[in-house]
């Protein structure tokens, strides 16, 4: 098969693209391409991956300008005229080459009160949540997030308003708002309301378009807006 012309970002915030030529293979993924470069062409290339099967969420990069999980993105699908431009995710500080600093992204999960708060201990019986209840279905729709940061990188509001919690943190908060076992709902709604939270979302839907898990953070954010509205009207916020 022919060779692939690959441009790879080198450096931190300041840097430049470096060109490589990589042999094409059937069923080759973008992560395969990056790995080939690191193992065979330039061992100093920094990138991040772990599971290689779309579970860990660590391999996201910008591929031809679009944020993607690279381990499950086939070159066939994204190469244009046998060319690939691979860079670090947008909206996150670049540490080196293809590696971004994800701390800001996950700190925002904490700010959105993204951790579960229940009352039961391990001595209590299991909570029984009906799988077909309306709330449980809403949780199901958002729960499979792998924390890859693709949505965060795709969101223009994050780029314009650095305080904005972003689609993944808000999606996480929504799954907890709909979790009947959780007991800090008011605090959480307060944490996700307003200029840095769900009300900043413009419903562009880039997050939903790009999420590799097929989640719809936009729908979660609309849910939060409705929940905040209800809580304001009831005087609970």
């Amino acid at each position: 098969m022919s060779a692939l012309a690959v441009e790879v970002w080198r450096g931190g915030a300041q840097g430049a693209f470096q060109s490589f030529e990589v042999p094409r293979h059937p069923s080759q993924t973008v992560l395969d391409v990056v790995t080939y470069i690191q193992r065979s062409l330039d061992a100093t290339l920094a990138y991040r991956f772990a599971c290689r099967v779309g579970m860990c969420g660590s391999c996201a990069m910008s591929v031809n300008g679009v944020p993607r999980w690279t381990c499950r993105t086939h070159v066939d699908k994204v190469a244009r005229e046998n060319k690939l431009v691979i860079g670090p995710l947008r909206n996150l500080p670049v540490i080196r080459d293809l590696v971004t600093d994800m701390r800001g992204f996950f700190d925002k999960w904490a700010r959105a009160k993204g951790s579960f708060a229940g009352t039961k201990t391990k001595r209590d019986d299991f909570a029984r949540v009906a799988p077909d209840s309306a709330d449980r279905r809403k949780v199901d729709a958002g729960i499979e997030c792998i924390g890859c940061g693709v949505c965060y990188s795709a969101c223009d509001v994050v780029a314009w308003n650095p305080d904005y919690l972003g689609p993944a943190a808000l999606n996480r908060a929504w799954t907890l708002v709909k979790d009947e076992r959780d007991v800090v709902k008011h605090e959480r709604l307060r944490a996700v309301a307003g200029d840095a939270g769900c009300h900043a979302c413009h419903t562009h839907m880039s997050c939903t378009e790009r999420c590799p898990m097929g989640l719809a953070p936009t729908a979660a954010i609309s849910g939060l807006k409705r929940a905040v509205l209800g809580s304001v009207l009831k005087g609970e916020l």
């Binding site: 944490a191 200029d195 009300h199």
Partner: peptide
């Protein structure tokens, strides 16, 4: 401005 005030602006 509080989260509530910001939410009220959105509602308005």
């Amino acid at each position: 401005m509080s989260a509530k005030a910001q939410s009220l602006l959105w509602i308005a």
